[in-house]
Design a protein around this nucleic acid. Structure first.
Length: 469
RNA sequence: GCUCCCAUCGUCUAGUGGUCCAGGACACCGGCCUCUCACGUCGGUAACAGGGGUUCGAACCCCCUUGGGAGCGCCA
């Protein structure tokens, strides 16, 4: 049988980092087995589900390149099917109507808790014959009282649950809508999911789902419960840890492949390899090698990985990814088209930027002359340098042909006359042109900027220096 | 409280009974490179939670303790 996996988020919020990792593992598993990856939206919680959340999930998946082969399926559109299965189960006696009020059940649980027991429904409606006229019943699954249910988990191994621990759970609300544990089972069954890969917070639900599957006469899928991702402080990952939504990472200038690479390594390793391409992940990842322990999210390592992937991107590709971030810096397309070739700029900037946002910030001066110089840098490198700037202007105006080596020669010649240090010349030049004391190598920078723009910026700096004495 | 899961450097991990006085990566600290900032490179600090077993031998197997997490919803 060919592999079929699924990702089944509920649209009650953004697509978060933890969800992405289980999606990634499921996707990877399907891809490496030439299987199918199914996307299913679990929207049966009408109260909390929103269209915005659904849209954010789809957008996040698309950005990450986690493409699905089937779906998205929406559970709300499968109500008829659920009702039919529910009716069959009631008819077969594997489920029954329960007329207990919420208050009654709550009182029951309260008492059990007081006695130090695990709160559970006692099954008092199992044998009820007559419906209560004034209450809309829920439907409960009739769970076996004896024996045990065994989960064979790819990651955790064999996990045993005594059936006496599991009570008769509600599978349909009093308004007739089915609940989570029931929907997943029917869906995974109908969609012929072979491998259920999900967070290990679901491990405790699994025996119940297996029991329902058995009552339905279906064969349970293979389960893999992956550990959770914690915040850097080892606490449950939440908003106070900063970004948890994938789309925020896009905003912050991360590459999807870097985020995926980071996530795949959280709980899994392939020897000493740290950097993986999408193809390598598909080829090398194995769900059975995933760790059992939860792992902490490490933002510094993600940043480093992002830099690694920035390093490896072809220049043209890099430029294309960078463009939207330039717009965010206030540069429009025409402005960029007039300046130096973006691929060349990006290529120059890549090894000193860890995110696309940083790279965009560093790229701005190539397309827009600095409005003012960084005060400290101007004070240190421009002031009293009128003569030097003037000489530089003259020499660069004469440099032939305009290019890094000619520019380099100009700087060297001048440096020989200014204490012999390159820095004595390069720094004033850098501040004049870039507006600050940090930029890529100055010869390469000027070569890209162009002679005309360079001279005009130099001239402005010279006037400033002379006006300041 | 009950049930289930988990436990190697600060963090991500390698390690599946001897080749481990525990390897790699991020971060951190130092050197080198250098026109700035970075990149790169060389080196350093740093861990098998504790206690019992099993074994000639345990990071690796078993048990207990401790610590962490999850579940116990007409949420998913």
């Amino acid at each position: 049988m060919s592999v079929r996996t699924r990702f089944a988020p509920s649209p009650t919020g953004y697509l978060h980092i933890g969800g992405v990792r289980t999606a990634l593992y499921s996707w990877l598993h399907a891809r490496q087995h030439q299987g199918r990856f199914v996307l299913r939206i679990e929207d049966t919680d009408v109260e909390r589900s929103t269209h915005e959340a659904t849209a954010a999930i789809l957008e996040g998946m698309a950005w990450l390149g986690l493409d699905w082969d089937e779906g998205p399926f929406y559970q709300m559109q499968r109500m008829e099917r659920y009702r039919a299965v529910l009716a069959e189960m009631v008819a077969a006696g594997s489920a029954y109507h329960c007329y207990c009020s919420r208050e009654e059940v709550e009182a029951m649980r309260e008492l059990q808790r007081a006695n130090g027991e695990k709160p559970r429904y006692d099954g008092r409606c199992r044998t009820r014959r007559e419906p209560r006229a004034d209450v809309a019943p829920v439907i409960r699954f009739r769970s076996p009282d004896t024996g045990e249910t065994v989960v064979e988990d790819i990651i955790h191994g064999t996990v045993r649950f005594r059936n006496s621990e599991l009570d008769d759970l509600i599978i349909a609300r009093s308004d007739g809508t089915p609940t989570y544990n029931f929907c997943v089972v029917v869906d995974d069954w109908d969609m012929q999911i072979t491998h259920v890969i999900r967070g290990d917070d679901h491990l405790n639900n699994t025996p119940r789902q297996i029991q329902i599957l058995q009552a339905l006469g279906a064969t349970p899928p293979i389960y893999a419960h992956v550990p959770m991702i914690l915040g850097p402080d080892k606490q449950k990952l939440s908003k106070r840890h900063g970004a948890v939504s994938v789309l925020q990472y896009r905003e912050m200038g991360y590459l999807p492949e870097a985020l995926l690479n980071f996530l795949v390594r959280l709980g899994w390793a392939h020897g000493d390899q740290e950097v993986f391409t999408r193809e390598e992940m598909i080829a090398l990842f194995h769900i059975e090698e995933v760790n059992k322990a939860a792992s902490a999210f490490n933002p510094e390592k993600l940043l480093w990985l992002n830099a690694q992937h920035l390093q490896r991107l072809p220049a043209a590709d890099l430029a294309q990814r960078l463009a939207p971030y330039l717009v965010a810096q206030g540069l429009d397309a025409p402005a960029c088209a007039q300046g130096p070739h973006l691929a060349a700029v990006a290529d120059l900037l890549r090894e000193r930027a860890k995110t696309l946002v940083e790279m965009a910030e560093a790229a701005v001066f190539f397309y827009r002359a600095p409005q003012q110089w960084e005060a400290k840098d101007a004070e240190k490198h421009l002031r009293h340098q009128g003569a030097l700037l003037s000489e530089l202007h003259g020499a660069l105006a004469a440099a032939e042909p305009w290019g890094a080596s000619a520019i380099h020669a100009v700087i060297q010649d001048l440096a020989a006359r200014y204490e012999g240090k390159m820095g004595k010349v390069a720094q004033p030049l850098r501040v004049a042109v870039a507006g600050k004391a940090v930029s890529p190598p100055i010869d390469l920078t000027l070569a890209l900027l162009g002679r005309e723009e360079t001279l005009s910026r130099l001239e402005r700096a010279r006037r400033w220096a002379e006006s300041r004495g």
